[in-house]
Design a protein around this nucleic acid. Structure first.
Lengths: 141, 141
DNA sequence: TTGCGTGCAAAGGTTTTGCATGGCA
DNA sequence: TGCCATGCAAAACCTTTGCACGCAA
């Protein structure tokens, strides 16, 4: 069964494959577009945007924003990984994006839910701050 | 003493006043611009951007991103409020932005710092998820 | 007078939309 | 054949930059 409701095209398959192969990293429309161009099979950005939007509606990818001036990031949302609560840490200084899996965060989510009535979606949430390296190598930039 | 190093102009004062009066809410460049237009004293967006950037460098305002397609949000960072760790919760569904002050979050910050070597900046961090009202009124949209 | 502040206009980048063509079923 | 998918071009949007003029000191 084709859960997209649409036709099966080369581009659709290529984009979904790309997302699956990069399920452990976050990608942008530009990265996808560049990748396909380098492979010799360019795909229009319009098409990428439209497919990502569909995948978003189907819950197959997640979208999150790291900075208002940079482009949006997408990541494949695999069902198996859904179990660990998985946050992102983004360093203001070096721009590194760190994946964080930690049981303390489960408690946080439970507390915010029971104490504040808010259900946090860990995947889409990005913590901003400073990473170890940047705190230590604190040469005044 | 003028801690900006620059001249004192009507626009500078107006923008700073606006930020002070709205210290409990988050504003965008558009909102500020519209407000001044309605007041009959329009200020160019360029000027607003430039002043906010300066205030950002001085640490008088904070900037954070709620969505990649919407404009950036700014909020006045008053010294007195700096003491409570202050996060934002943003509801995916109704778009509401909730301010959260909670001692559990202090622990979280301490844990991530000592356990993972990452120093979280609470002000800039936005949690995404669903608010109470939207969880309850869960009519399938 | 000097030099920063201002704001118009234009450029930059990301994302969306219109439309004619192409490809799947 | 019918209809969706594609991608070019153009628009919309937020933000930044260039430049000439205005205003604070």
């Amino acid at each position: 069964m084709n859960n997209s409701g649409g036709y099966k095209t080369k581009q659709r398959e290529a984009i979904l494959n790309y997302m699956l192969e990069h399920k452990n990293s976050h990608v942008t429309v530009n990265k996808i577009s560049d990748y396909f161009s380098e492979q010799g099979t360019p795909v229009g950005v319009t098409t990428i945007y439209r497919h990502l939007e569909k995948l978003l509606e189907q819950g197959l990818v997640r979208k999150y924003t790291v900075d208002s001036t940079t482009c949006a990031c997408f990541q494949y949302a695999s069902q198996e990984e859904e179990c660990h609560e998985h946050f992102h840490l983004k360093c203001d200084k070096c721009g590194k994006l760190i994946h964080l899996e930690c049981s303390h965060l489960d408690q946080l989510i439970k507390h915010v839910y029971s104490g504040h009535g808010f259900e946090i979606d860990p995947f889409r949430t990005v913590f901003y701050g400073r990473c170890k390296e940047c705190i230590n190598g604190q040469d005044k930039k």
